[in-house]
Design a protein around this nucleic acid. Structure first.
Lengths: 341, 341
DNA sequence: TATTAGCACTCCTGATGGTTGAGTGCCAAG
DNA sequence: CTTGGCACTCAACCATCAGGAGTGCTAATA
């Protein structure tokens, strides 16, 4: 049973009003606000139907109604018209992400921050995947007796290092030799390939120098795995003054969940497939602490490839028509910024 | 007018009770709890005196009394007996910080986390000063045309890197030469010295290669300056369910302040002088958002030198006699852990 | 002189109850 | 199908009241 035109209009109007005011919407209010020449009684009938079909719910008998996550979903899919980014927001985005910033980390930070600032919600950026990076350079430095610092550099300028304990002291010459071997054999190759090769080559060897190489390999592996976990989040506290979550119990849960990141990362990585903005509304995320929230995310593309995803976390009741283009725009700009650097 | 023995005992007892229960303490309660054979009326007289002298205050006419920050200060200075670390806490501390962990960053993280966990408050660690580190190694890598990645390594294994844009493309040989020059001239010298020398030497030169060196110098400067700002904080939201700050307004302020770090860092750096645990109780910090909180901090010592400070932020009403040894112990262990690595 | 019992007073807290207003569901008339 | 009417529900607000904890003060006591 499809919704008729009038019902859709009323649903749209109701959700818009609720987003604007945050209070349940009653039949009188809605009848007036919707602009249709229609009596509250009629509206009540329609609302009752919409409630039956799961789009609305009333917090208690004599309150108005508020949208369910199903209602919001229908709203964003079928009723919503996104508005273009406001000039001021666009300005600010350009200002923060449009310039050349040499450091990747800084760019990511700027993006997270700007998301949080412009939306007054929590902003996040999943760090770029490194899977397709290639190895640019390796260095082994003897820091002290039996301690070697391994440094990995990728072609994009990622630098990662690790302290390795060795059984015997190794001379600078030996380490140099190892580094040279490493660079000559593997320099310019994709990290993943390097690791696979090393895994095979080092399977059964037990030489001391091979231990260094093995550790180096582990470092490489960590570089690939580490960013499985990494994610920048800013403005979690903005979630504090969402009246809808005021009951501190749920709030704590949410903040903890956001802090943990693990499940969140999992959720987001699933949304890296397409190249479009994606929404998780309320329970849709299948992740309990988020069930009162919505997540708006968009993948960002660097040199033609989706490297990560960014977005915001906020209340279900958020101005989607503005948030969506904002997240989208930020994703584009971040992609561009990262392509330059 | 010194406080007589009985007054001190009562003050102590009152504060202990208030720390335990969180509610204002009345004369009846106190008379019973203090173990003295004394009537509530007498206690009232004493309490009135203590209030006059600024140690106590009553939230309203017919509530009991609670300590002021002056009261707490007297308490910790003159009345408090710290208890030894509980075996379980000690165990946990050892478990988390007693092992060898190669990565400095990880150790610092572990310390922050364990502080927050054991105290159920916000834990922080100021990152170690690098001022006295020496330069171990410098590398310049051409990443692309006109982009050079500079990598600095200190003797402790800190690695820092920076992307430098150049006007002209530089060959690998040229960069190598620059790095060699750098390493030969400055390797093994303290960072600060390196920077000073470079500042002098490069004052008026304008060669392309000198630009690289200058950028490298800036990187070095950043390494020294950066950690002026850096501080790890964990468990901020433990502060959420302090009943004393429930009014979300103050709470937001506090969380923001903690997030900003700037003033906090400033406050803490002042407390790196001595080698003892230090407390800032309430307004003592001279930092408005903290005026309802206490900060317990302790400097940590690596190789005989104070390199940083760590501690916790919590309500004024905290079990100081346990928190103090805990912070102290953590500082010792962190110092030890960092000496090894 | 220090301590204590007694007493009047203050003020928070929680319960009670009435009123108001928004909103609903249903029914019968248009 | 729409609408006005109507009875009903319920949260929110407010005033009131009793109870209780606690105080300060005073006068008696040891």
């Amino acid at each position: 049973m499809a919704m008729d035109e009038r019902a859709r209009h009323l649903l749209k109007s109701l959700i818009e009003q609720h987003i604007a005011n945050g209070v349940p919407v009653g039949s009188r209010q809605l009848a007036k606000g919707a602009g249709l020449n229609i009596s509250p009684a009629t509206v009540r009938n329609v609302m009752a139907d919409l409630e039956d079909e799961g789009y609305l719910i009333s917090p208690h008998t004599s309150a108005g109604r508020i949208p369910t996550h199903v209602g919001y979903r229908f709203f964003v899919d079928a009723l919503l018209r996104v508005v273009p980014l406001s000039p001021e927001s666009h300005q600010l985005l350009i200002h923060r992400l449009g310039h050349y910033i040499p450091d990747t980390e800084q760019v990511l930070h700027a993006a997270t921050e700007v998301l949080s600032e412009l939306t007054h919600m929590a902003g996040f950026v999943r760090v770029p995947r490194r899977a397709n990076r290639t190895l640019r350079h390796v260095d082994f430095l003897a820091l002290r007796e039996k301690e070697v610092l391994a440094i990995f550099v990728t072609d994009k300028g990622d630098v990662e290092n690790r302290l390795i304990r060795t059984e015997h002291a190794l001379s600078a010459a030996e380490l140099n030799q190892a580094a040279n071997f490493f660079n000559e054999s593997y320099g310019g190759r994709p990290l993943q390939e390097v690791i696979q090769h090393l895994q095979r080559d080092l399977q059964q060897s037990r030489h001391e120098m091979d231990r260094i190489l093995r550790s180096a390999m582990e470092l490489g592996e960590e570089m690939l795995e580490e960013d499985q976990q990494r994610m920048l989040i800013e403005g979690e506290f903005q979630l504090l003054d969402l009246p809808e979550l005021a009951g501190s119990e749920r709030l704590r849960e949410l903040l903890n969940a956001v802090r943990q990141k693990r499940d969140l990362v999992h959720l987001l990585d699933g949304s890296m497939r397409g190249s479009e903005v994606r929404l998780f509304i309320g329970e849709e995320s299948g992740f309990a602490p988020l069930s009162d929230c919505s997540v708006v995310s968009a993948p960002y593309v660097v040199d033609g490839e989706v490297l990560g995803v960014l977005g915001v976390i906020g209340p279900m009741r958020m101005p989607y028509q503005q948030i969506i283009p904002l997240v989208d725009g930020t994703a584009h700009l971040l992609g561009r910024a990262l392509s330059q650097s």
